[in-house]
Computed example of a mutant assay.
Amino acid sequence: MSDLALEHLTKIYPGSETPAVEGVSLNVESGSLTALLGPSACGKSTILKMIAGLLTPTSGDIRFAGSSVLKQPPQSRDAVMVFQDHLLFPYLTVGENVGFGLKMRVQAKAKINRAVGEILELVQLSGLEQRKPSELSGGQQQRVALARALILRPRILLLDEPFSNLDESLRLEMQTLLKSLHAEMKTTMLFVTHDQEEAITLADKIALLLSGRLRQYDIPQNLYNHPKDREVAQFFGARNFISGRVEAGKFDCPLGQIVLPENAPADGRLLTIRPENIVIGSNASSDNSFPATIASKKFLGSQTRLELDATGQELTVLLSPNIAESLQAGTEIIIQLPRQSLWVLP
């Protein structure tokens, strides 16, 4: 069942001729954790604000469980938004901040206190009810912001790059917490991020936005291994593109004939393989094996990057430093392009 549907959603800001968001349509399944992924100024936060009711679309529709919410004010939409800056009330305690929404709904004090205690336990902040936001760390403040949103039990939780202001260790900690909260509460969550790794780690599905347009909406594995086009592939780190044509299950190109996986599109003219999937030191008689010369080698920490020249075709390979240790620039090697790691762009 779809909890949220965007239908041809478009937003053009006053004074601009270029849409910030153009014709975006997608269905977010009930209880799912979905990422809006893309570079800065691609329309991610604009979409979130339109869903929350903070911005009015230029055209298109937003539906919750099949019903349009365009005429509903933000407070009536049952969608709560958590911002990059947590926006806690500095003069209220943690408990008062978390319970603020329930207080506005005129809930009984005993009920509010009980709900605050339960949600603070979920976000691992039990015992901090009487502290002020200024007495908390950045990660703790963000947990309070999450608790303040979740205590309302919204139909949809919207998160606008909630962890981008945290250092790496805190960000990883908060990602783990969000994943566990989602598993516990089954709330439909939509979060904005520019971090590919964060999207792949957290999301059930990813909506990739480039220049205001939805380019691919899919499970993380398909965006990574089966990109829709070259731009999508490049966004997810693809660097190897080989021009040619498909003929009888093989890809005819300057390297020779490359045996393709069975599901390869018959009309493809561009072959891609991720840098980490190229095999070094293969048997020259194996399928899809070709001679190459190492043009350069660069240590990157957890990986080593090799730039190869394979009969004029430039290829990039990523290896573990241990495997790459004995390889040097100028060395001639045999590489293999594993059949199941190949993808022909339609």
Results as ranks from 00 to 15, higher is better:
Leu55Phe: 04
Glu121Ser: 14
Met81Ala: 01
Val28Asp: 01
Gln75Phe: 09
Phe100Gly: 01
Phe89Leu: 07
Gln130Cys: 06
Leu6Lys: 09
Ala65Tyr: 12
Lys103Pro: 00
His8Arg: 13
Ser126Glu: 15
Ala35Val: 11
Asp85Ala: 10
Ile62Gly: 02
Gly53Ser: 06
Glu121Gly: 15
Pro39Asp: 07
Ser59Phe: 10
Leu48Cys: 10
Leu128Thr: 15
Arg105Pro: 10
Leu136Val: 13
Ser45Ile: 04
Glu7Met: 07
Pro57Asn: 09
Leu87Gly: 03
Ser68Cys: 07
Gly101Ala: 10
Ala115Ser: 15
Met104Pro: 08
Ile51Glu: 00
Pro57Cys: 01
Lys71Thr: 03
Leu37Ala: 04
Ala108Phe: 05
Ile112Tyr: 05
Val28Arg: 05
Phe89Met: 02
Ala41Asp: 07
Pro74Ser: 01
Gln130Trp: 08
Glu96Asp: 14
Val98Ser: 08
Cys42Arg: 02
Ala79Gly: 03
Ala41Arg: 05
Ser67Gly: 01
Gly117Thr: 11
Val24Ser: 03
Val24Arg: 01
Arg77Trp: 07
Leu36Asp: 09
His86Tyr: 15
Asn113Thr: 14
Gly127Asn: 12
Ala52Arg: 04
Ser25Arg: 08
Ile12Arg: 06
Leu37Gln: 02
Leu4Thr: 02
Glu7Trp: 04
Pro39Val: 06
Ser30Pro: 09
Leu88Pro: 02
Leu6Glu: 08
Val116Ile: 15
Pro19Trp: 05
Ala115Asp: 15
Leu87Ile: 02
Leu36Ala: 05
Ser45Met: 06
Glu7Asp: 07
Ala35His: 13
Ala65Asn: 08
Ser76Asp: 11
Ile112Gln: 02
Ile119Asn: 03
Thr46Glu: 08
Leu33Thr: 14
